[in-house]
Design a protein around this nucleic acid. Structure first.
Lengths: 182, 182, 182, 182
DNA sequence: TATGAATGAGGCTTCATTCAT
DNA sequence: AATGAATGAAGCCTCATTCAT
């Protein structure tokens, strides 16, 4: 919170943040659809009417939260891919960053949140194809497949434990060399 | 509808089906969470209270619909896999059956519905690994990845057109041989 | 149940009795006001519509039950009063019969049920005044007072135990000789 | 109503009182069990939802009404008993205060309301026994009997007329000296 | 700008009762 | 007679939103 702002501005920022924090908590507990504006207000020290000075619906709160999350997530998810000099490095970077984030954030990070990074991933795949790391292929389909596989494995790691490094290696190999028997 | 049933029974069957049909329509239009029991009743010639003679909540309607869908879908989705004698045949069978169903049903078939076949797919993958069609690998992650890729490609085929056979071949090759440049 | 009745008649009697028994149970469990016709039907092997062949409302059921109860209760409550040759015998007879019934029937017998015997009591009091057992007094007020006292003591006997004979003697003396110190 | 309160507060007070008044009227007309929250709201200029800003159920309304009534009634009912120096004065005070209240309030005062004063009465009886006004006796049973007799006589006074002073004397004598012939 | 009570639409569900079978 | 599904009124309650203070 920037304390150099005039007091009025600072309070407004705080109230806005109060509502966002409450929204995050409430959505996490009840799910977006089950949550109501009232629930959000109640999780706040503010009065009911005040909500409408900042947002016009819970949908707007969700969008703001998603942006917050995406802007924190996307750089983390994209880490290491730009510098990859082989396809293996690229895939390893992707999978290990997903596994790391999932471990870090637990159930508070859903597949929907990972989608925030889907376009980045596809763009990076296109670039990688350009650099010759991968053969020419359907990068959109590949990006979707990578994300789904990463999510599936990450879920199992979180629920049943396991070594992220090993998992990274296995799933990297799956995409690198395909499914055919040796 | 068995017209040999006594009239009372026949009407009960019809009413139940009315509600299911209404539910399908309403969920498709508004989404499950936004839909209300009232919406479903209103999409029906029946009276409000009649709903509760058949279901106790919209959740029960959804479950019934899912079962209906799954029992129609799963056999179609699994077609051709059991008989596959190579990995390529297996993957081709999977992708082409997804593309066929998507073409056939249009937007009325969502990724969530495809998930009905996820467990089947994984079981068939395990069997295929046993038959030596694929090397030993993480079949759960692979199943998720295949489904996501199929869904992504199927969506693009539906929206922007394209040749399903070509698409099948491309995405089959993606998983068969991996992403590495030749 | 009179088995000499033709079969039709017998079944009708049984159904009527089914409903009455269900009504008694349901009213006892939930209270008259909270109970619904549906509750009564559900406590019965009969179908919903059948209820209306026998009664038109739960009120009618209650009346029938009250009559049943009253016709069983009133003679028991009135026992021994007609033969009393002193005021003390009369009062003793009244109190001990209330205490006996309460013990016997437990919580299934409420003050409202005792009221079924209120008019009888008053009539017997009038007769007793005529026989010179009591001085001329307001028998209506006395009957109400006797009933209330009996109910209060009977409740305490049931809840906290105690000797009915002693209780009878004490409360008889209360009304016989009044409250003045000796 | 304190007109020095800020407007918002004043309106809140008024609304609460509106609901209580409506509740009193509705309960009197239909009985507590038959009455619904809707009935209460409808007897009010307020909107449906407003009810729940003040009470969460009709039960809460009843409690509030009972407290209101009890706090108005109990002192009136207990008048004169503490100062009584004889048993006769005590009983006279009790009966005449019941008769006065019944005359004053008419049908709006039921036996159930009188029960609000039952515990007070019993406590005062205990104290009176301590002061030697009455012999040692079952004050709980006596209190119940006094209340029932008072209610019975009060009802007759209201319905068929009669002299309260005479009635007081008669029923006082009933309890003072008992029922035995001279 | 913040407050918080009022609003009334609208969700869910149960009920008494009817009536075709 | 007995059945039991259909009806739709009506109860309960919560909600998003407004608006006077």
């Amino acid at each position: 919170m920037d304390t150099t702002l005039p007091k009025r501005q600072r309070i407004k920022q705080q109230n806005r943040q109060s509502i966002l924090d409450a929204g995050r908590r409430v959505f996490a507990e009840q799910g977006y659809d089950a949550a109501t504006v009232r629930d959000i207000i109640r999780a706040t020290p503010l009065a009911a009417g005040t909500f409408y000075n900042y947002f016009t619906s819970k949908e707007e709160v969700r969008q703001a939260l998603e942006e917050e999350l995406a802007s924190a997530l996307r750089p983390r998810l994209a880490e290491g891919r730009a510098e990859a000099s082989t396809g293996e490095e690229f895939l390893s970077a992707f999978f290990s960053s997903v596994f790391a984030l999932r471990t870090e954030r637990g159930a508070g990070l859903e597949e929907a949140d990972l989608r925030a990074g889907l376009d980045d991933l596809r763009a990076d795949l296109d670039a990688a194809v350009g650099r010759g790391l991968f053969r020419a292929l359907d990068t959109a389909a590949l990006a979707a497949a990578l994300l789904a596989a990463a999510d599936d494995v990450a879920n199992r790691l979180r629920r049943h434990g396991g070594d992220p490094a090993q998992a990274t290696e296995a799933v990297t190999r799956l995409f690198l060399a395909g499914v055919q028997p040796p």
